Simulated assay, not measured.
Amino acid sequence: MSDGKACLPFWEGFHMVDLQVGADTVHITLEPDPASRLSCGSCERGDLPVHEFCRRRIRDLPMLGKAVLLQVTLRRVACPDCGARMEAVPWLERHARLTRRLADAASTLCARMATAHVAALFGLHWSTVRTLDQRRLTRTIEALPEAMPRRLAMDEFALYKGHRYASVVLDADTRRVLWIGEGRSRAAIRPFFQALGEAGCARIEAVAMDMNTAFDLEVRQHCPNARVIYDLFHVIAKYGREVISRVRVDAANRLHHDKPARRVVKRSHWLLLRNPASLKDHERVRLDDVLQANQSLLAVYVMKEQLKALWSAPTARAWRAAWKQWLAHAQESGIPALMHFAKCLRPYWRGIVSRVRWPMHTGQLEGINNKIKVIKRMAYGYRDSAYFFLKIKAAFPGNP
């Protein structure tokens, strides 16, 4: 304990009059310096009379592994403009129970650690740390330059278990996450276009997406000049689920009397779906054996490669010829799953041929979605979706 007064640079405008060191906590008593300038905490008007004194307990950064508790005497000033207001303190936010140093340290550390871990490190409640981090994220996002997107990419990612999704919109040129919202319906993504405004929507030239009808219809309604481009990965993935997997299951069922052959077909699932260039030598041998043993699987596998070639057509004329040929082969195959897929794909032809003029895809968003999963795993999930979305937007501010 010290009987004298000590003026330290940590607490500008105050004297330390008492220091008590406990086993886990350091208690410090601070009194205002009479020589310090007294100003209003709202309008910062100076040279004001004291209205009353009050005491407040404030947390500061730990010292030597011990928590620091400040017992501070604060003054309320009689401001002619604002009335009775708390004095302005450089190292303390208005109404705050934490010093600026502690608040900045906790919020900065949230960029690398989970909120719960930061709270445990500083001995704070997790909701307090979350509020501090939300303020930091909001300031970071508001400091970004105004977005003027011309090309967009739209996709969805799993938000919670039980088929709960969120939609994300990316500036395809700067890789900046522009907007995130819960759901994947038209109503869920409409707020983005409303916030973009009529002039912003008219500026959009192209939008890459999967074959999500809600995204498609909303883009066509709000962005009259935009061309929709369907992503190759999503179309081929849909083909794999609805055609190749169906034909493989049917082929395996027809081989119920030949168990070894049936086992080979059943185990060929990933061989049929993977990119041929990614297969190893022994996997190519297995794939060739499966395709030679079943004509239906061979047909849908070849048709998959022809479908992928549509996205690399050099001109619209070449695309149109390849498209008509693919549809004709699908109809002539006599395979129900393939014929049904071709019938469902036919209305989407404009979004596929647009790839010739706009070589876009949602691959950027797929990589971002993987990073989103990492952000989510760091916290073992978020209780507040708005906070989670702020974390994502701040993590992808875009390229300069």
Results as ranks from 00 to 15, higher is better:
residue 16 M to T: 02
residue 19 L to C: 11
residue 20 Q to R: 09
residue 23 A to C: 01
residue 25 T to S: 15
residue 28 I to S: 02
residue 30 L to N: 06
residue 38 L to Q: 03
residue 41 G to C: 04
residue 42 S to G: 14
residue 46 G to D: 11
residue 48 L to H: 00
residue 50 V to H: 12
residue 55 R to L: 07
residue 59 R to T: 01
residue 59 R to A: 03
residue 59 R to Q: 04
residue 60 D to E: 03
residue 60 D to K: 07
residue 63 M to D: 06
residue 63 M to N: 09
residue 63 M to W: 11
residue 64 L to G: 09
residue 65 G to L: 04
residue 69 L to R: 11
residue 70 L to V: 14
residue 71 Q to Y: 10
residue 72 V to K: 05
residue 75 R to V: 11
residue 82 C to A: 08
residue 88 A to C: 12
residue 90 P to D: 02
residue 92 L to C: 10
residue 93 E to K: 12
residue 94 R to Y: 05
residue 98 L to A: 05
residue 99 T to P: 03
residue 99 T to A: 06
residue 101 R to N: 08
residue 104 D to A: 13
residue 106 A to M: 05
residue 106 A to G: 13
residue 112 R to C: 06
residue 116 A to T: 05
residue 116 A to D: 04
residue 120 A to E: 04
residue 121 L to N: 06
residue 122 F to T: 08
residue 122 F to P: 15
residue 122 F to A: 06
residue 122 F to G: 05
residue 128 T to A: 11
residue 129 V to S: 09
residue 132 L to K: 03
residue 134 Q to P: 01
residue 135 R to N: 09
residue 138 T to Q: 04
residue 139 R to H: 08
residue 148 M to T: 15
residue 148 M to Y: 15
residue 152 L to F: 00
residue 153 A to Y: 00
residue 160 Y to H: 09
residue 160 Y to I: 03
residue 161 K to Q: 12
residue 162 G to W: 12
residue 166 A to R: 05
residue 168 V to A: 15
residue 170 L to I: 00
residue 171 D to G: 08
residue 173 D to T: 07
residue 179 W to G: 11
residue 184 R to F: 13
residue 188 A to T: 04
residue 197 G to E: 05
residue 198 E to C: 11
residue 200 G to A: 13
residue 201 C to F: 01
residue 201 C to A: 01
residue 203 R to A: 15
residue 205 E to T: 01
residue 206 A to I: 15
residue 207 V to S: 11
residue 212 N to A: 14
residue 212 N to E: 12
residue 213 T to E: 12
residue 214 A to W: 05
residue 228 V to K: 02
residue 230 Y to L: 08
residue 236 I to P: 02
residue 242 E to T: 08
residue 244 I to S: 07
residue 245 S to I: 07
residue 245 S to T: 11
residue 250 D to F: 15
residue 251 A to I: 06
residue 253 N to M: 03
residue 254 R to K: 08
residue 259 K to P: 07
residue 259 K to L: 14
residue 260 P to W: 13
residue 260 P to L: 13
residue 262 R to M: 14
residue 266 K to C: 15
residue 267 R to K: 10
residue 267 R to F: 05
residue 270 W to I: 07
residue 272 L to W: 12
residue 278 S to H: 07
residue 280 K to Q: 14
residue 281 D to S: 08
residue 281 D to L: 06
residue 283 E to G: 13
residue 284 R to T: 07
residue 288 D to Q: 15
residue 289 D to I: 14
residue 295 Q to A: 15
residue 297 L to G: 01
residue 298 L to I: 01
residue 299 A to P: 00
residue 300 V to H: 12
residue 306 Q to Y: 02
residue 312 S to H: 13
residue 315 T to C: 09
residue 316 A to W: 08
residue 320 R to M: 13
residue 323 W to D: 10
residue 323 W to Q: 06
residue 326 W to F: 05
residue 330 A to H: 05
residue 338 L to D: 04
residue 341 F to K: 09
residue 342 A to P: 00
residue 344 C to D: 08
residue 349 W to S: 04
residue 351 G to F: 03
residue 351 G to C: 02
residue 352 I to P: 12
residue 355 R to D: 00
residue 357 R to A: 11
residue 357 R to P: 00
residue 357 R to L: 04
residue 361 H to W: 09
residue 362 T to H: 13
residue 370 N to D: 03
residue 375 I to N: 10
residue 375 I to G: 10
residue 376 K to T: 03
residue 381 G to Y: 13
residue 382 Y to F: 12
residue 386 A to I: 14
residue 388 F to Y: 15
residue 391 K to Y: 00
residue 395 A to Q: 06
residue 396 F to P: 02
residue 397 P to C: 01
residue 398 G to D: 01
residue 400 P to N: 02
residue 400 P to T: 01
